[in-house]
Design a protein around this nucleic acid. Structure first.
Length: 420
RNA sequence: CAAGAACAAGUCUU
């Protein structure tokens, strides 16, 4: 049944879940027994397709059939839980594997460390990392890269360099992903000179910049407003036979439209489509925001319809952009209607959603409605963040209610925010 | 080399 499982896992990797399950059922019907690996492959396919519930059901099914999920099966599920933001559930499932006495290995630690880093628990991640040797799990280049990326994302580049040093001392080689994480961290801090230097030394270290490397560089130059250099890099990557993808284009398009070149942005989008690339909601949202900020509501809504025609879903950010566009043109109630639509669709609004609407109401002088939304936001488990406070304080100031503004200022300080 | 892990793009206040 190695052949059969190979086929099933190939379908799962290709995202053809339906085919994978059809094959699975056929094999079972013709008397070929699946094993742990067959189930793990299918569970992985479900996880990667975002069907976490079905994945967990399949885990139960395999147990009912008398199979024992192994550490790989659990790692797959734990990773998927982390990636969908369910940090607590992920950790619970990990506890379960510990209770069952399943093996620890480098991969499970890497998954845990990555999940903790991305969930904002860098200290815990670090703790995990430190206890690996005691449990006979040796960190490899991926484990290090995960931790380096985690530190870069919190802006602690110094610690990232230390880790790079440490991994090299242990005989592990940094690869293109490791360098990309560093370049990205430095780029987000605006350290152009530093990233150019890394970019130039990479080849000397035997590491060839990838299309991700170029996309990061391009994005950094775009955000600095240096479109010329960004496009020079785009040309360079073409010369090096690297294939720009949707992310590359979206960095460029975003750079263009934020620098007042909406027409060029739309043209480049067209060019991307002509190249046969399929647009996603990120790139549409960027263009829609650009049109709104130009005051061109018609074009913005037209792109929204185009998204729907292409079968693209509106995510939270897309909704936020529409709500913001509407609020800025004084159509706050229509914006609030979109919030209801999100609820109906089961799409969870985030801080930006509420902050946007709160800002809309404050600007209209309707502080009462703003506080209504603040209540709703908190009922939904979202505590006000620094932007919320800034918005409300500015709202009170605009009304001349300086005492109330000061009250809020004190509250935010009490809650541990430093006013900016 | 029959199953699992790492990097890039879009939105809010001042």
């Amino acid at each position: 049944h190695i052949t059969h499982t190979t086929l099933i896992s190939a379908y799962c990797r290709a995202g053809k879940l339906q085919e994978a399950f059809t094959l699975f059922e056929e094999f079972v019907r013709s008397g070929i027994m699946p094993n742990e690996i067959t189930y793990s492959s299918l569970i992985n396919g479900l996880c990667k397709a975002g069907k976490l519930l079905e994945a967990r059901e399949l885990l139960k099914e395999m147990q009912n059939m008398g199979f024992f999920p192994n550490h790989v099966t659990y790692t797959t599920l734990i990773d998927a839980l982390f990636k969908s933001g369910k940090v607590q559930e992920a950790l619970q499932l990990h506890d379960e594997t510990v209770r069952r006495g399943l093996a620890f290995d480098t991969v499970i630690f890497s998954v845990l460390i990555d999940g903790l880093c991305k969930g904002g628990k860098l200290a815990k991640a670090r703790e995990m990392f430190e206890k690996m040797p005691r449990l006979n799990a040796i960190p490899n280049h991926i484990t290090y890269t995960i931790l380096i990326d985690g530190h870069c994302k919190t802006g602690n580049i110094e610690e990232a360099w230390k880790l790079l040093d440490e991994m090299e001392k242990r005989g592990l080689k940094a690869n293109v992903v490791t360098y990309n994480a560093l370049i990205n961290g430095l780029g987000k801090k605006g350290q152009i000179d530093e990233i150019v230097e890394i970019f130039n030394t990479m080849p000397k270290m035997g590491v060839i910049p990838s299309n991700v490397t170029y996309s990061i560089m391009i994005d950094t130059y775009c955000k600095k407003g240096n479109l010329q250099q960004a496009f020079a890099l785009y040309d360079e990557m073409l010369q090096k036979q690297l294939i720009p993808n949707v992310v590359t284009f979206s960095a460029l398009i975003n750079g263009l439209r934020k620098n007042g070149k909406m027409l060029e942005a739309k043209d480049l989008f067209q060019k991307m489509l002509e190249k046969g690339l399929f647009p996603n909601s990120v790139i549409y949202t960027s263009l829609i925001d650009g049109f709104f900020k130009q005051g061109n509501m018609t074009a913005a809504f037209k792109l929204g319809e185009e998204m729907i025609e292409k079968g693209l879903m509106f995510d939270v950010v897309t909704y936020n952009v529409f709500i913001n566009g509407l609020c800025n043109r004084g159509k706050i109630n229509e914006g609030k209607e979109l919030l209801s639509e999100m609820h109906r669709k089961g799409l969870a609004p985030d801080h930006v959603t509420y902050n946007t609407l709160i800002h809309g109401y404050c600007k209209a002088g309707n502080v009462n409605e703003a506080f209504e939304l603040l209540d709703e936001m908190m009922r939904n488990g979202l505590m006000p963040n620094i932007v919320t406070y800034n918005t409300l304080i500015a709202g009170y100031c605009g009304l001349g209610s300086m005492d109330k503004a000061e009250e809020l200022l004190n509250e935010m300080i009490k809650r541990g925010f430093s006013p900016d």
